[in-house]
Amino acid sequence: MLKFSKLQWFCLKTLVFIVCLSPFLSIAWDAFNDLLGADPIQRLHFRTGDWTLRFLLISLAMTPLRKVFKSSLPIRFRRMLGLFCFFYASLHLLVWLVLDQSLSLENMLVDVPESPYIILGLLAYTMLLPLALTSNLASMRLLGPNWQSLHRSVYLIAVLGLIHFFWLTKLDNTEPIIYALVLGVLLAFRWPIIKRLWHRQ
């Protein structure tokens, strides 16, 4: 079991934070320097969407890692990783709202009903929002055992997020298939829990 001093913890967490933020810095740099290419809105959609899925999968990997390495270290980063997933999901939504829809309700009212993958994305984000809001210690205490039940909805969110990705590709599904395989492995670790949740429905 690793033992860290308070300072070491602070340094480690800061380091992880900066690493998690670096995709955003890279995206922002490219956006400000006009380096997003021919179809900048699409590029922003893909890059923020990719990092949302990646952080979702990385945060889902922490519990299995704890079991594999018999160390609580991964769990101590789970919240930060989950919040980064939410951060990139929020950017993804913001790109859609501001750049794709020009903040026009009229645009959204015609686009959304005609685009099932957007409906799924919005649903997944709506489900992610309460998880981000209750990710603090006070909420954990307040919700008690319900906290864990609530946060298990992340499995469903991950599945919705992936279908969202599958539904917007035209033909080449290579990328979403890779994400799906990783998610499959991560969910397999929780198979007993998922089976129980499924039967309770």
Binding site: A38, D39, I41, L99, D111, E114, S115, P116, I118, W167
Partner: peptide
Amino acid sequence: PHPRWSQRRERVIGASL
């Protein structure tokens, strides 16, 4: 519409963000 997305508007290649 395409069954999975709307065709009402289009992104203009080369346009600003």
